[in-house]
Design a protein around this nucleic acid. Sequence first.
DNA 1: GTCATTTAAATCGTGTACGATTAAATCGTA
DNA 2: TACGATTTAATCGTACACGATTTAAATGAC
Lengths: 152, 152
Amino acid sequence: MKDFLSLNSQLCFAVYETASEFTKLYASVLQPFGLTYTQYLVLLSLWEKDAVTMKELGARLHLGTGTLTPMISRMQENGWIQKRRSTEDERKVFVYLEDKARQQQMAITQKVAEEIQLCNIQVEEYNELMKRLNDLHHKLQDRTDHKKLGRS
Amino acid sequence: MKDFLSLNSQLCFAVYETASEFTKLYASVLQPFGLTYTQYLVLLSLWEKDAVTMKELGARLHLGTGTLTPMISRMQENGWIQKRRSTEDERKVFVYLEDKARQQQMAITQKVAEEIQLCNIQVEEYNELMKRLNDLHHKLQDRTDHKKLGRS
DNA sequence: GTCATTTAAATCGTGTACGATTAAATCGTA
DNA sequence: TACGATTTAATCGTACACGATTTAAATGAC
């Protein structure tokens, strides 16, 4: 049990600190553009696939409406995106990129790339870390899936 | 640049999603105890070293007073810890574990261990992930250090 | 065709998170 | 020893993040 406590607390801190350092790096790059890290994730998602509903966007980012609704409103106020209620099904709200977001994509990506390069992260490391994160991610998800199905 | 955009967005999502899934796992275990994930990190830190100042606690958790002060107050209201201003130097505020926190350490750790075991995470994976996270963590920090010193 | 159910967003309350500012105590040094 | 600089917390404003509730629209069973 003592082993577990120690290993566990190390992992808790590692995940927590690394994620927050990571976020801060991006935040510092994004600030001049008037973007937060989460808003940047929204743009990343929309650059891949535009014109999605709040529900789909929330699913992609694993965010509920309690987080998404006010954030998307702010992004609309800042001219990054547009929200429009569907006429077909008035429950749905679609989100669209504004020109500003398309025009600045390269500039933002460029600045992020420059900052990342300062860290000297090798592609191998990049991929290995991502693999490890995704493995953990899937194990965490499988666990909840098993629970929902009445444990495996 | 296109390569970078794709790799970068994958890593952004991987870090973000994994950290939030990870946090949610702990949150679900901790909720019956009336603890949040961050409050649990405070306990982990104090179980290792009790009777520290707000400043030291903030340094250990990489949290500023804007986050820490209200959180520590809540934890005091809930009987986990005690805050006492130093008589030697009245600028300093020391944080102490309450009996409740010591008494429940095993029960909390046990519940967390049970939940983690459901994920079938191997020790090798555990260590490898931690190594990768810490490597990234250090590279992120070195980068800011270089900047402060007028770039390397 | 009506009404219960389901679906999609918005809203609310609580709790992080962070940068900037403020306030009080202590320290350094003339 | 006086006083400006530094240190330590607290406070403030903005922005996530999440669970729970609410509201409105669409769907489905009868």
